[in-house]
Design a binder for these strands. Structure first.
Lengths: 212, 212
DNA sequence: TCTCGTTACAAACAGGTGTTTAAAACACAT
DNA sequence: ATGTGTTTTAAACACCTGTTTGTAACGAGA
C-alpha cells in the first residue's frame, strides 16, 4: 500500500528530487539527507538503489540527457547553413535556458563545466562532442571550407560562448540589472540576435581569410 | 625570531596560501586546515586574524582585485571605438587567462560567477559594473547611439560571453581537444579574433537597426 | 501458512568541517 | 625584572557529511 503523496516508485522519487536539487545547488552542495527528505524516503535509500551518491548523479545525468535530446534535438541537417545556424542556436538556447523539466540537463551541464565531477568526461563525449561537431559543420559551410582550421574552431567557440554566457554568468548578469531571457519568445529573440551577430562576424572573418 | 621559510607575517602567509587554494578549488572546497597547512600556521590563525573563513575570502578578493586593476587597467579612454574595443578585449582576456599571480582575480571571479558566495554582490559592484560600463560606452560609440538600447546590451553580452567562455568552460574545451590560450601571444591572437568577429557582428546589427 | 528475496527503516559509524577555548609564548614599554 | 597587550598553540566542540549495519516489514510462490 502506498501513500497517495508518494505514488511513484522509490528510485523515481529520488531521481526527481535529486535532479532538482543538483540542478539548483550543484553536486557537492546537495546532501543525501536533503534529497531523501524531499523525496520522502529513508536516508539509506540512495545507497541501496544507486550504490553511491555519484551513482545517483550519473543516473540522473543520463536520464536528463536522454530527455533533453528528445525535446531539443541537435543533429546535422541539410539546407542553407545560415538557416542551420539559426536552428542550432535556437535549440541550444532552449536546452540551456528553457524552464521545463528537461532544462535540468542544461543546468546540470553548466554546473559540471564550472565544477567537473568524475562523471564529466563521459558526458562530454556523449553530449558536448556531437553538438560541437554539428556546429563545426555549419561553420565550415558558412566559411566555404572543408577542414577545421583555427578560424573555424575560433568561430565555433565564439558562438558557443555567446550562448553559454547567459547560463554560466547568470548571477552577474542579474546583479547588473539585465533581465535573463526565460520565456519562449525572449529566448527566441536572443537566438535571433546571436545568429545575426555571428553570421556577420563570420562574413568578416571569411573576408580576412580570403584576403590572406 | 622567525623561521627562514616563513619570513612573512602570518596574515600575509595565510592570504598567499589561501589565494592559491581558493583560485584552484573554489571557496567551499578549500578547508581552513588545508590553508593553514600550506601556510605553516596554526588552525586557529584564520579565525583570529580574519574573524571568519568568509572574512579571509573577502580580504583576498579585495587584494586580488586591487592587484589586477593595477596590472590590467580597464578604463574609459578616447580614440576610435574600434581601437578601444581591441584594447578592452585584450585587457579582459589577460585578466582572466593570464598566468601570473594577479590572475587569481580572474579565477576567483569565474569561480564566484559559477558558485556565488555572500561576498559576491559587493564584488560585482566594484569590479564587474565599471568594466561593463566601459564596454557599454565602446559599443554605443560603435553603434552610433547614445543610449543603452536592447541591441547595445545584447552586443556587450555577446562580447563578454566570447571572452569568458574560455574561462568558464575550460574543462569542456580541453576535453574536446582544443588548446586553451595561455601564453601572451596566444591570448593576443584570441583577442584579435574576438575583436574582429565582434566588430563585424556589430556592423551587421547596426545595419539592421538603421534599416528598421 | 511458511519461506525467501526484496525493500524500508532507525541507528550508528568514521571522517571532515568551521569555530572556540584556555593556556602558553612572545614582544615591548615601564 | 615586571606587567601588559598581542599572538600562537593544542585541544576540544558541535555539527554535518556519505556510508554501513542489523532488523523489521513487505510481497509473492510453494
Amino acid at each position: 500500500m502506498m501513500n497517495p503523496l508518494t505514488t511513484n516508485a522509490t528510485p523515481d522519487r529520488i531521481m526527481d528530487a535529486a535532479g532538482e536539487l543538483f540542478a539548483e545547488n550543484g553536486f557537492r552542495q546537495t546532501s543525501i539527507r536533503d534529497i531523501c527528505a524531499h523525496a520522502n524516503v529513508n536516508i539509506a535509500a540512495v545507497n541501496y538503489h544507486f550504490r553511491d551518491k555519484e551513482g545517483l548523479y550519473e543516473a540522473i545525468l543520463q536520464r536528463s540527457f536522454d530527455k533533453c535530446v528528445n525535446c531539443y534535438p541537435i543533429v546535422a541537417t541539410d539546407g542553407p547553413p545560415e538557416e542551420r545556424l539559426a536552428i542550432f542556436v535556437r535549440m541550444f538556447l532552449l536546452r540551456i535556458l528553457g524552464s521545463g523539466q528537461p532544462a535540468w540537463h542544461g543546468k546540470l551541464m553548466a554546473a559540471e563545466m564550472a565544477n567537473p565531477t568524475a562523471a564529466f568526461s563521459k558526458l562530454v563525449e556523449q553530449a558536448a562532442r556531437p553538438t560541437h561537431n554539428v556546429l563545426l559543420g555549419i561553420v565550415r559551410d558558412l566559411m566555404h571550407t572543408t577542414e577545421n582550421t583555427y578560424q573555424v574552431e575560433a568561430v565555433a567557440l565564439s558562438i558557443m560562448g555567446q550562448c553559454l554566457f547567459y547560463k554560466h554568468s547568470r548571477p552577474v548578469i542579474e546583479l547588473l540589472g539585465i533581465p535573463i531571457p526565460v520565456t519562449q519568445s525572449e529566448i527566441e529573440s536572443l537566438a535571433e540576435h546571436i545568429t545575426q551577430f555571428s553570421l556577420d562576424g563570420i562574413s568578416g572573418v571569411r573576408a580576412v581569410v580570403a584576403h590572406a
